[in-house]
């Protein structure tokens, strides 16, 4: 609702400037990474866990692909190995959290720094360029990122697939059960540890996948990019979408919409000539506003059901 409202607001304010393809695609460009990381992050938030490294994984995955490809590994293999590597990062996050009982906030904070450091060391602080596929105009280049809408289509597809997984499969129910009542779920025979580890793996995998698409889109990799910049927006997107950080509840579609909203905000404010510095104040206000609306909404529903 807020997203549509903002969309209308910017359309009126900036006229056709906002709705033309170039501008909309740039809004989608901002939104893609936040929405993608947010969708994976929701799984962990529902589990009452968090993955702070997902933003850095998003940046790290294309580097792995780039290095492997540079060493002569065929592109498809390089992409698959990179995805395997980030899935392993997710597995490590999960294993440390579950087996050593370290809060995931701490585990993934550490992973975040380690991945950042690896990029700096391996890249020698030099930009990664050119990214394979990024200069081509063939079918696969378009699919993998150079197409105007390819990234946001990837993210939308991921959102749909993961929503089906979350709502319709046993894994989804087990995520809600584990996050809603850890002890109760374990007593009912839910393998809570396995569920958590797989969720970490999925979150990393999805972030890495869209990270590769994002790198193809921009064509260069900047070793100075810091994942925390992404993850905080992504968590913002989750919260705006209606996911509480207390576990047991969340919506992936909400995170997607939340990501789009932040994208529109970032792009729209630039277009209507508001200083980008103000952007952060708006984001903060929207997060608080969305939270308040969601809480009230829940109360309303509860009352209408007579409880």
């Amino acid at each position: 609702m807020i997203t549509i409202g903002l969309f209308v607001y910017f359309t009126i304010k900036a006229g056709s400037n906002f709705t033309d393809t170039l501008s909309l695609s740039s809004a989608a460009g901002y939104a893609g990474p936040y929405a993608a990381i947010g969708v994976g992050e929701v799984l962990l938030l529902v589990l009452a866990e968090i993955d702070l490294s997902a933003g850095q994984v998003f940046l790290f995955c294309p580097w792995v692909m780039y290095w492997l490809h540079g060493d002569g590994v065929p592109l498809l293999a390089a992409i698959l190995i990179a995805l395997l590597v980030v899935s392993a990062v997710g597995a490590i996050n999960g294993l440390i959290t579950v087996l050593l009982n370290v809060p995931s906030f701490v585990t993934t904070l550490a992973t975040n720094f380690i991945l950042y450091g690896l990029v700096l060391v391996e890249s020698n602080q030099l930009q990664g360029s050119p990214i394979p596929l990024s200069s081509g105009s063939g079918f696969w280049s378009k699919v993998m990122g150079t197409g105007t809408w390819s990234e946001i289509i990837w993210v939308a597809a991921i959102t749909i697939v993961m929503t089906v997984v979350f709502k319709r499969t046993r894994f989804g129910v087990r995520i809600i059960a584990t996050g809603g009542n850890l002890v109760g779920a374990a007593e009912a025979g839910v393998p809570i540890r396995r569920v958590k580890i797989w969720a970490f793996v999925l979150c990393s995998f999805l972030s890495g996948l869209v990270g590769i698409v994002d790198s193809v889109k921009y064509g260069t990799l900047d070793p100075g990019n810091f994942g925390v910049d992404y993850i905080l927006y992504a968590i913002g997107a989750c919260v705006i979408g209606g996911t509480a950080l207390t576990g047991g509840r969340g919506t992936l579609l909400g995170a997607f919409i939340g990501g789009i909203l932040i994208g529109i905000l970032q792009d729209g404010l630039t277009l209507i000539g508001v200083s980008t510095n103000v952007f952060f104040i708006y984001v903060g206000a929207v997060i608080i506003g969305a939270m308040a609306v969601n809480v009230q909404f829940d109360r309303l529903i509860a009352r209408s059901r007579g409880t």
């Binding site: 996050g179 009542n181 109760g184 007593e187």
Partner: peptide, 13 residues
């Protein structure tokens, strides 16, 4: 099977 005091259910399911 054992039922513990009011801990067993998942509120959100």
């Amino acid at each position: 099977e054992t039922v513990y005091q009011d801990l067993a259910l998942i509120p959100q399911l």
